[in-house]
């Protein structure tokens, strides 16, 4: 057993972090949300760059033109996506790349932007609809494919996360069945782990933002991070992040190598712990920033709002707790 990053995994994570810092730094992130909102909030040029870096083809076999890596590596990549607050249906498109055929190839290469929605959701809110080339519906029978143009929806005026535009849809079109129920279940499992990885990145970034502010801001003639009430908030943020990290990596490794654990426990654990870390860290990071934390200008709310979006995807807290209780 060696549950630590290998050299290759470390290099991969560092490489992706550098890529994100180079191509989607804070200025570009703020520019997208403050000045230059794109349809569906997907920057197509950036999307193409992400595709070239392997964001979508990461787990596609090498002889099929992919990178041929596992879920563990994908988790490291998506953690960085969370840190950088990369927008768009990244996980959905990544999962679609595993479907093969034209759809899979298009998703892997970045030509197709693919979204996912749960068929039995209520209300049905489709993310990034204006940017999508394909929408996949997950339900009991499997995965159905619909053309975004066939989705009759009303754009939501005030989505909570400015990076995640939503369309309210009364009824989804029938669509064409493209994968069976087993594949849909796999989508949910892998989607949960990769989304948990994104949340892990968000949780870690929020810990950094809060700690950094706590080291700079002075009140009563002291650095606020020296006050225990503030220090302990930061400490709790770190603890949540590290617990989530262990859970997410462990679930990812378990999906790659099922004999090492029980995916039925590991997957909902990862999602639950990472959702909890990201959302609660968002609240605490806001508190540490005081009045600044309540401003649009400080990035904390953007991370918190994104965390709220992810917390509803591929299983929310209620689903995960019930799934875990069922294993007892």
């Amino acid at each position: 057993m060696d549950f630590q990053l290998s050299d290759d995994q470390r290099d991969l994570a560092t490489g992706v972090r550098e890529f994100c810092e180079g191509r989607f730094d804070r200025d570009r992130m703020r520019n997208l949300v403050d000045h230059d909102r794109k349809p569906g909030m997907v920057d197509k040029k950036l999307w193409q760059e992400l595709a070239e870096t392997g964001f979508f083809s990461l787990r596609v076999a090498e002889d099929e033109g992919g990178v041929g890596l596992g879920t563990a590596e994908a988790a490291l990549v998506y953690e960085e996506a969370g840190r950088a607050l990369l927008p768009g249906p990244l996980v959905a498109t990544h999962l679609a790349a595993s479907l093969g055929g034209e759809l899979g190839a298009g998703a892997a290469s970045g030509e197709l932007i693919v979204g996912v929605v749960e068929g039995d959701a209520s209300p049905i809110l489709v993310e990034h609809l204006d940017a999508l080339d394909v929408l996949l519906i997950l339900d009991e029978d499997g995965i159905r494919k619909v053309a975004p143009a066939d989705v009759a929806g009303t754009a939501v005026k005030n989505p909570v996360d400015p990076f995640t535009p939503l369309h309210h849809v009364e009824a989804l079109p029938e669509g064409e069945l493209v994968a069976d129920a087993e594949t849909a279940a796999r989508f949910r499992r892998e989607g949960a782990v990769l989304t948990a990885a994104v949340q892990l990145g968000i949780a870690g970034k929020l810990t950094e933002l809060a700690t950094q502010y706590a080291k700079e801001r002075e009140q009563f003639g002291r650095i606020i991070g020296s006050f225990q009430a503030v220090k302990h908030l930061c400490a709790d943020m770190l603890v949540r992040t590290e617990i989530a990290r262990a859970a997410v990596y462990s679930a990812a490794v378990t999906l790659d190598d099922p004999v090492v654990g029980d995916a039925a426990v590991a997957v909902p654990t990862a999602k639950l712990m990472a959702d909890d870390a990201a959302t609660r860290n968002g609240k605490d990071a806001t508190q540490v920033h005081g009045g600044m934390g309540f401003t649009w200008e400080v990035d904390v709310h953007l991370y918190l709002k994104r965390a709220w979006v992810h917390a509803t995807q591929y299983g929310d807290a209620d689903d995960n707790e019930e799934a875990l209780a069922a294993t007892l």
């Binding site: 549950f3 630590q4 262990a246 462990s250 712990m273 019930e322 875990l324 209780a325 007892l328």
Partner: peptide, 27 residues
């Protein structure tokens, strides 16, 4: 029941963190 589910996650995560820390010490 959900509280039981939640604690299942907590201990699963703590078990994963144990392996993480042990591996770190081993290295």
């Amino acid at each position: 029941r959900r509280e039981l589910g939640h604690l299942t996650a907590e201990f699963e995560a703590l078990w994963a963190l144990t392996k993480w820390n042990v591996s770190e010490a081993a290295r």
